[in-house]
Design a protein around this nucleic acid. Structure first.
Length: 827
RNA sequence: GCGAGGGUGGCGGAGUUGGUAGACGUGCCAGACUUAGGAUCUGGUGGGGCAACCUGUGCGGGUUCGAGUCCCGCCCCUCGCACCA
């Protein structure tokens, strides 16, 4: 018997698949399509186990769909712009382009060694000018539509990366990439107006029913839509000057006892200029800029500006404060403080002895909350020694004509009234900020903009694209495009005079925001996307990747698709119909990482066991969305299983194909026949819902059955061979190389890829007899086997008879018969 | 604090129109084949007990003939957001 020589087999079939272009996408409109996509990797040098897991899952789905005769698009490419290439340039004295290309070619060979079914003819790399040209083209479209704009703003700056970052790329106040604490810096930068799509992004969650709930909830949280009211507080000293404050609680407006500005609020300068406390206040504002350590409760601090604002509903003059607990980045950077009904304001007013005015009374005694003991249930008074704000519902008081109204109703009524009085207006506010896309980097897409002294900001003409990166980079030090005078100097497209180019490049998340759409027509040099192809292939039917992109990449991509639809490039509202977020690969309880020294190199495992074993292990060890603990013993188990399959097929490879007539089979043969078809059913249903671990375990059970099977007459062998044939087909998405080889060994000359997925015969699942569990008082006591057509009475009698010794002298109160399952005798 | 997801053998994990808890794998124990086997095949394996049985799915209640699964109240873990007005 041949030994399972995985190295030879895998090499043989990888070559054959490539030569025969087995995975070339067939665009055929009379067939249903399936677009299976895994998140493309950054070409860091080598693939890691996380990639192997991600791409194995995708490969199983793609191959499974191929066997269903579907036109499958399964492409792969490279997220090839990024900072590590620049660091490599400095540290290893190699051009970012060369370093990236080398990495791509090695990683591509690794992916091929795994046997993944990619259509490599559609490969793309975002650092190639035939890709980033279309980034620039899209940028110009965004600019035309007013969706790209330049603005001076306080932006996030990472000193290590020497560049700015988008809000989404700041994690716990630190750079998402290098973990350096982020500082704010005032710079003029390019933004994408993602906020214009905030509502669409939120509303279209309804189209994403098959996305994991937690991803949707993270995005919802990030977008942060809230309904409220913007209220105008005029300055007492100059009623032309207005502080706009956003609140979700207009019902508490009569309880506003002061106004608070964020330390960065633009009006502050004017308010404090020339006052006696000016210097102190400026010092305080500086202090507020210092970021404190994380998960540390920040103490509320503030200062009185000396100015007063007018509460528009009652003309009261209330003090204007500056405090660190008000954020410039949300709403208008100013709030009305209602200490009686907002815990934060309450704490602040206690600290600085600011007045507290109750404007909502709990309705009944039971409205008391455990956190807010009230001395008298019906009249909440600040003098009651309130220990916290009352944030529950109630009845308005101290609120003029609105007294007695329920506060929930009052929100709308007061908003409407303020609108009529022109002192405020209903407003929807979002937490989402615009996307800062400028980066002070070399290795990225140049922003196609020219600055002219007389014409200002002038977009590059479309036919001038691409604006190429200067290639002759001296790699000895950190460079940006500003280091290349020959790149900067140009002529103004409008007036022809000397002008200079924008030297910032785009955030690399721009690249990955539409690459999935480029795959439908990757070589089109006339347009970014061939709309016809897009109509056929988009949206991606199944997207697979890590949860770490829950907000960043997945939100940006959704935004891009909506813009691309609005400019008529595509006709879809959402990029990814279904999303599978796979868990991490961990070892010894921690994520594999160089610093922890617990990395397992895929190359080593593939060399030792082969790709098929690695694939089986990864799929079997845990369901895809859960974390997977790496286990050498688990890999051994997968290896043993494949060898078991290999041996059983070898033992019974030669044989006859003959029609099976179930009624003529021996009892064991019929049992195996039935088991085979039940396995087909189980495996099919499991793969449909991505339960690869249980699909493989079902195959293992079938193999175990085969080892027990001893029928060696002709029909016995026919049944066994039918089982083997189906087993090989079912395992082929998981362990494709070995299955191709075994497919040949059982007498086929074609590729298994030409074979349809097996279907089970319902009649084969039918049994002559069934097992019935006999319970007494809900506890299993015995089992009986009865003919499948037995009536309830017969089953009941059999059951009572089986446990008669345990029933003697007992009164039977009740007997429950569940068809086909059990009998429960209650005594 | 808010939101989402979890808690089942030594370990990874099965199991929901409520119906034999622990499939499959791993580990461990035993047997077979063998000069030998960390190869392979076979059997056993939640805990307690010689056994009949008892007990067991984070904790406490409840519904039910019957609960890992449904309901109520807790505890713990993971992830995300977090002074968002």
């Amino acid at each position: 018997m041949d030994k399972y020589n995985f190295a030879e087999i895998e090499n043989k079939w990888q070559k054959r698949w490539e030569q025969e272009k087995r995975f070339k996408t067939v665009t055929s409109t009379d067939k249903p399509k399936y677009y299976c996509l895994e998140m493309f990797p950054y070409p860091s040098g080598r693939i890691h186990m996380g990639h192997v897991r991600n791409y194995t899952i995708g490969d199983v789905i793609a191959r499974y769909k191929m066997m269903h005769g579907v036109s499958v698009l399964h492409p792969m490419g490279w997220d090839a712009f990024g900072l590590p290439a620049e660091n490599a340039a400095m540290n290893k004295n190699v051009h970012p382009s060369e370093w990236t290309q080398n990495n791509i070619s090695y990683m591509k060979s690794q992916l091929k060694r795994m046997g993944f079914s990619y259509d490599w003819d559609r490969e793309l790399a975002t650092c190639n000018e035939d890709y980033y040209k279309w980034n620039q083209w899209l940028f110009l479209k965004f600019y035309e539509k007013g969706l790209a704009y330049k603005q001076e703003a306080d932006v996030n700056w990472c000193n290590t990366c020497q560049t700015v970052l988008a809000n989404e790329q700041v994690v716990d106040s630190c750079c998402w990439r290098c973990n350096t604490p982020v500082r704010t810096k005032r710079l003029s930068q390019w933004f994408f107006r993602i906020t214009a799509y905030a509502d669409n992004l939120l509303a279209d969650h309804s189209l994403l029913g098959n996305w994991p709930e937690r991803v949707l909830s993270m995005q919802k949280n990030w977008i942060g839509k809230s309904y409220g009211c913007e209220i105008d507080f005029r300055l007492a000293s100059d009623t032309e000057k207005i502080i706009k404050a956003f609140t979700t609680r207009p019902d508490t407006i009569f309880g506003a006892t002061y106004v608070v500005l964020a330390p960065q609020h633009p009006l502050i300068d004017e308010l404090i200029k020339g006052t006696e406390n000016e210097e102190q206040i400026r010092q305080f504002i500086e202090q507020c800029k210092v970021r404190v350590a994380l998960d540390e409760e920040v103490e509320k601090k503030g200062m009185f500006t000396g100015a007063y604002a007018i509460n528009p509903v009652n003309s009261e003059h209330i003090p204007v404060w500056i405090a660190n607990y008000v954020l410039m980045g949300y709403g208008s950077g100013a709030i009305m403080a209602v200490p009686a009904h907002d815990q934060r304001d309450f704490e602040f007013s206690k600290k600085y002895d600011l007045p507290i005015r109750v404007v909502i009374q709990p309705e009944l005694q039971q409205a008391q909350t455990p956190h807010c003991p009230l001395s008298t249930a019906f009249s909440l008074q600040p003098s009651d020694n309130m220990t916290c704000a009352y944030e529950e519902e109630g009845i308005l008081t101290n609120s003029g004509v609105f007294n007695g109204m329920g506060n929930v109703d009052a929100k709308g009524t007061i908003t409407k009234w303020m609108d009529e009085e022109k002192i405020g207006r209903g407003k929807i506010n979002y937490r989402l900020r615009d996307w800062l896309v400028s980066r002070q980097r070399y290795w990225g897409t140049p922003i196609p903009i020219i600055y002219c002294e007389s014409c200002g900001i002038v977009p590059v003409k479309e036919d001038e694209l691409p604006i190429r990166l200067p290639k002759e980079l001296d790699v000895s030090g950190r460079k940006t495009l500003a280091s290349f005078p020959e790149f900067i100097h140009t002529k103004c497209p409008a007036c022809g005079r000397d002008a200079s180019r924008e030297t910032d490049t785009m955030d690399t998340f721009v690249d990955s925001s539409w690459y999935f759409a480029r795959y439908v027509s990757p070589h089109d040099d006339k347009q970014p996307i061939d709309t016809k192809q897009a109509d056929y292939f988009l949206p991606v039917d199944q997207y697979i990747g890590g949860i770490e992109h829950a907000i960043l990449h997945l939100l940006y991509s959704r935004f891009f698709v909506k813009v691309m639809a609005d400019i008529g490039l595509i006709n879809h509202k959402e990029p990814f119909a279904n999303l599978l977020t796979q868990g991490m690969v961990i070892k010894d309880g921690a994520k594999m990482s160089k610093s922890k020294g617990n990395v397992v190199d895929p190359d080593d495992i593939v060399n030792k066991y082969g790709a098929d074993t690695v694939r089986i292990f990864i799929l079997f060890a845990a369901p895809p969305e859960k974390d997977l603990e790496w286990s050498e013993q688990g890999v051994e188990g997968a290896w043993r299983f494949l060898n078991r399959v290999w041996r059983i097929v070898q033992q019974h490879a030669a044989g006859v194909r003959q029609e099976i007539k179930p009624e003529n089979l021996s009892v064991p043969a019929k049992a195996l026949y039935s088991f085979t078809h039940r396995t087909i059913k189980r495996v099919t249903e499991d793969i449909d819902v991505f339960h690869f671990n249980t699909a493989i375990s079902a195959c293992m059970e079938l193999v175990n059955e085969m080892y027990q099977y001893k029928e060696d007459d002709t029909m016995g062998l026919v049944v066994l061979q039918e089982a083997l044939r189906n087993l090989i087909l079912m395992l082929s998405p998981f362990a494709p190389h070995m299955c191709e080889e075994l497919w040949g060994k059982i007498g086929n000359s074609t590729s298994i890829l030409d074979e349809p997925w097996p279907t089970y015969l319902p009649e084969a699942l039918q049994k002559d007899s069934i097992l019935i569990v006999v319970q007494i008082n809900g506890k299993a006591r015995d089992k009986i086997t009865v003919p499948v057509e037995s009536t309830e009475d017969v089953i009941k009698a059999e059951a009572l008879n089986a446990v008669s010794d345990k029933l003697s002298g007992k009164e039977i109160k009740k007997v429950i018969v569940v068809a086909g399952r059990l009998v429960n005798i209650v005594i």
